[in-house]
Amino acid sequence: MDRAQVNTGEHYLAPLTPAPSHDALLGRLGAYWRALGVSDPKQIAALSEQALRRLPDHAESTDLLTAALLAARELLDDWLARTLDLPRQPRVLAAARAALLNGTIPNWPAVLFTPPDDAARDVADDLRVALAEAVPASVPGAMPTQRIELFSLLHPLHRGSRQDASSSSGMSHS
């Protein structure tokens, strides 16, 4: 690591804001929703308000801005878990989020605000298809370590006595 490249004058991330204003919170949340693909200002406002209502759940553990963003993500995860009937596990929910954000369902924000109907079910089906499947289900098998007896001039003398000692390691240097 080249320490000379490190800026010690100021921190890399913006300084912590102890008590951000409501507008500041809405501003950051808005930017985040836009990054997620929500472009309608009304939808952004509604989603941000919903996220802020969840703030008391997070505010004790971290700063308000971070808590607001965690709440926004949780809001989305809740919707995904309900829509896709998923267990609330971080990796599963992350996979659903990735499926939602990979561009296969361009109008997904609209579905968030519609009651469960055929269109929502179609979106859910599309999302299930888009869920990444990195690896197939594991079917554990065994690959026992092989025994290789390396050559030694003393091999005939030591062969008998070493068999027991080396059986656990799978390798014998007799």
Binding site: A14, P15, R28, A31, R34, D63, L69
Partner: peptide, 20 residues
């Protein structure tokens, strides 16, 4: 990973200009 994601969005890098 989740924490850093929230951290970067709540306190975007000062000079990086990578986040809105």
């Amino acid at each position: 990973l989740l924490r850093l994601h929230a951290l970067f969005w709540s306190r975007p890098p000062i000079n990086a200009g990578m986040l809105p």
